[in-house]
Design a binder for these strands. Structure first.
Length: 806
DNA sequence: CACTTGTGGATTTTT
DNA sequence: TCCACAAGTG
């Protein structure tokens, strides 16, 4: 390893400023790096790792580097590999909290037993949002609770929050105060028990269980404490309590707070973050952790990277003038390294179609002026906004890559096929079982499944065993009996195959023997259905993914394949440099940089989002999101808004929180000094629009996406078609047919008695509640009602039947 | 059991 | 608008 230092050492400090050098070359101990947007923190992190290895003589496997996305981890590894070579890079632990914890649990979970006696084994499944919500639904029903009062999705979010705060079911139950908290504790416990019986963990468990292991098992903690002597955490402002507890335990070797980092050996802990870019509080990230870090580690070094190398002076000033309106900040000034640059360009469109046309026209002009399409990104607050711009981009023949939205691994056909692999890997995974037991059709319906469950419970055998013995189940049709038995035996055969074959071969065998792909191909040929054709392609793509995985993975087995795909996001497969513009949400854009940025939908109620308007901290988070968006831009910044926006099939009126047909420009626009932007005249009506003479015709006359035919009318509600593009990112290539624009719909102003704050009301689902807020005016108001059972809810009196009491 | 039709209800961000 | 799920039909 000594050979590294000369070559690497020389370049290690090249082109770094004083603070960056200080961060890279500091000695051991704890440090906090406050890194403003565009201040080169990734470079610092990478060089710091190289410095630890080559100059401070640290072992590669003493390094733990936590990134926010898998993509960031992959990039970091790639750049280190170039400097230090493959062997060393391979032994570095670089990844997200979730992937690192998953890997650790594959080793350690056998020694974990919950208070309640639940256990998991190393082949645990990782449940995604859908799986978790389904389990939760079943539990809520089993507890005889009303799904209307306890909506599974909302409960999932609540449990997630509890887990991210580090509470196990028992602890939470003991601390439950309100009636609802007691109920929640009950649901939490039965949910967790159900996960255990499926040998499954959800995303949050990955971190929570590692925490439990570490804090209850001193030997185990000590082992990992000995190993990870150099810890680096990126995007530290978006760390939650559970994650921070874990880091602190690993750093100090004890679950108790305030221990010094000392064990007679050299250790370091470097966290890097920017309070102004904290945008994940809804995932229980807490930027106050970064503020408290110096207290927890009193000998902490503080280094501020305040030199911005990315953006023009104007763009930085725009960002600064916006973020200056926040109160909860850590003092920091971004110094600019570039010239003034062009002013921010604002366009007030008449509606979202006009807005999209403006962006498309501008992109064409930029291209004509020699800009590459890959230099351009379009950012928006909500995924739903992508639809309007996509349609125009397709129409104008501007290629684009969509990041987010419906992800590859969430598509039906992919989930189906993967469910086979998951079940083969973890036989207890009932979600996987339910998904595929009748896919393809085996003549097994609801009744047959109930019988099967009863039988399995009665005989105390697994569902798979029960399948094999299905001919012995009374009251089951011959078709179902045979179907179940065949499936059970076939399944055992696949399990045997899995022992001796690589993933792609196993996958191919499953596809062949189930005839899944064959049936799909037949259907595609027969119907010429775009959607089905896309599905066939997606499955072929999955096979390619498996093969690629085998080629590059360190351990190319089923276990690491499944772990990996459970934790990847759409963003992770996004590659820069393609000849296409990029579309994504502001959240996805964190950590990325583009020469040209379009921020769309700058309207009150959309951005800042309606759900944030009545909460000052939430509003500050929206502002940070705006700050993140602006600071993605290096050269040019565009901001657009639509005076009228089609929302759920109608214009703003009637949509929650909008009190008029016309939207109000985002307050963030008003916070920008007027001399930094052009095109924004808060009171003027837009004069010329791009779409006046070419409003989108209805779908029948619309141009076809990429030359393929649109979805036939009858299929319009069957879903969306997606196709893979060359780089593995998704592109929407089908259009939902049958849509026609009816224009503005009239409301008959219904006669309902207006309510005011303080009124007590009765709702037939939610029970008694009190109006705490009235939003909007006249016949369009909405009521924020606090219910005894369910808490606050925003209700539209046009839909919700509210009866005034008293 | 599989498929069609109808209705009600919902709307942020994602590892 | 559009999606999920319930109810109804072959």
């Amino acid at each position: 390893m000594m050979t590294i230092s000369l070559e690497a050492g020389k370049n290690l400090l090249a082109r770094l400023n004083k603070e960056q050098i200080a961060a890279v070359t500091q000695g051991f101990g704890p440090s906090l790096i406050i890194a403003g947007a565009g201040s080169g923190k990734t470079t610092v992190l990478i060089r710091r790792i190289v410095f630890l290895l080559s100059e401070l003589n640290q072992d590669p496997d003493s390094i733990l580097a936590v990134t926010f996305t898998n993509k960031a981890a992959a990039e970091m590894k790639q750049r280190i590999k170039v400097i230090l070579g493959e062997d060393i890079t391979r032994s570095l632990a670089i990844g997200t909290f979730h992937s690192i914890c998953a890997r650790l649990l594959r080793q350690e979970i056998d020694s974990y037993e919950a208070e309640e006696g639940w256990r998991w084994s190393r082949n645990f499944a990782i449940y995604d949002e859908t799986d978790s919500v389904n389990v939760l639904k079943a539990q809520i029903t089993a507890l005889n609770l009303d799904e209307k009062v306890f909506p599974a999705k909302q409960i999932k979010h609540a449990i997630s929050a509890i887990k991210n705060d580090g509470f196990m079911p028992g602890t939470y139950a003991n601390n439950a105060k309100t009636h609802r908290e007691t109920r929640l504790a009950q649901i939490y416990a039965s949910y967790q028990g159900a996960l255990a019986s499926n040998n499954a963990l959800d995303f949050d468990d990955l971190i929570l269980i590692v925490n439990e292991l570490m804090s209850t098992n001193p030997n185990l903690l000590h082992r990992w404490y000995q190993r990870f002597r150099n810890i680096l955490v990126d995007e530290f402002q978006d760390t939650n309590k559970a994650q921070y507890d874990l880091i602190r335990m690993l750093a100090v070797g004890s679950p108790l707070k305030k221990n010094p980092i000392e064990d007679g050996r050299e250790r370091s802990l470097m966290v890097v973050g920017d309070v102004d870019q904290s945008i994940y509080s809804w995932r229980k990230a807490d930027f106050r952790i970064i503020l408290g870090f110096q207290n927890d580690f009193s000998d902490c070094r503080l280094i501020k990277l305040e030199e911005n190398y990315r953006s023009t002076a104007t763009i930085l000033e725009v960002a600064n003038s916006i973020i200056a309106n926040n109160t909860e900040r850590l003092e920091k000034v971004l110094r600019c390294n570039r010239s003034e640059g062009a002013k921010g360009q604002v366009y007030e469109a008449s509606d979202e179609i006009d807005e999209a046309y403006y962006v498309a026209e501008e992109i064409k002009r930029l291209k004509a002026r020699g800009r590459s399409l890959s230099d351009i990104v379009i950012l928006y607050r909500t995924n739903a906004q992508s639809r309007a711009i996509e349609e125009i981009l397709v129409r104008e023949h501007i290629p684009y890559t969509l990041v987010g939205g419906t992800r590859f691994y969430e598509r039906q056909e992919i989930k189906d096929v993967l469910a086979y692999l998951k079940l083969i890997y973890n036989e207890k995974d009932s979600q996987a079982f339910l998904r595929i037991i009748n896919v393809p059709r085996r003549g097994i319906g609801k009744v047959a499944l109930e019988r099967l469950h009863e039988f399995a419970a009665q005989e105390e055998i697994s569902l798979i065993e029960a399948c094999i013995k299905a001919p012995g189940i009374a009251g089951l049709g011959a078709k179902a009996q045979q179907g179940l038995k065949d499936f059970g035996l076939r399944f055992r055969h696949w399990q045997a195959l899995a022992q001796a074959n690589v993933v792609s071969e196993l996958l191919a065998a499953v596809l062949k023997e189930t005839r899944y792909l064959e049936l799909l191909e037949e259907e595609a040929r027969a119907t010429k259905d775009e959607l089905t054709m896309g599905r066939v392609e997606n499955i072929q793509e999955l096979l390619a993914v498996a093969k690629e995985f085998e080629a590059i993975a360190d351990e190319a087995n089923l276990e690491s394949f499944l772990t990996r795909i459970s934790l990847v996001s759409d963003l992770d497969s996004f590659q820069e440099g393609q000849s296409a513009i990029t579309l994504m949400t502001l959240h996805s854009a964190k950590g990325l940089e583009f020469p040209i940025v379009f921020l769309m939908g700058l309207e009150e109620g959309l951005f800042p989002h309606i759900r944030s308007l009545d909460s000052p901290p939430a509003l500050e988070e929206e502002r940070r999101l705006m700050y993140v968006g602006v600071t993605r831009a290096a050269d040019l910044l565009y901001m657009t808004l639509a005076r009228r926006r089609m929302f759920q099939g109608r214009f703003n009126n009637g949509a929650p929180g909008f009190s008029s047909n016309y939207s109000v420009p985002s307050r963030f626009l008003k916070e920008i000094s007027a001399d930094l932007i052009i095109g924004f005249y808060p009171d003027a009506k837009p004069e010329q629009t791009y779409s006046d003479s070419r409003r989108i015709p209805n779908s029948a006359e619309r141009p076809r996406a990429n030359g393929v035919s649109a979805v036939p009318l009858g299929q319009s509600n069957a879903g969306k078609a997606y196709r893979m593009s060359e780089n593995g990112a998704m592109r929407m290539s089908g259009m939902t047919g049958g849509a026609n624009q009816k224009g503005d719909r009239q409301f008959d102003a219904q006669a309902y008695p207006p309510l005011k704050v303080g009124d007590i009301v009765q709702h037939n689902k939610f029970g008694l509640g009190q109006v705490v807020q009235v939003i909007g005016e006249k016949n369009k108001e909405l009521y924020n009602v606090e219910f005894k059972e369910t808490g606050k809810r925003l209700l539209d009196p046009k839909f919700a039947r509210l009866t005034k009491i008293s």
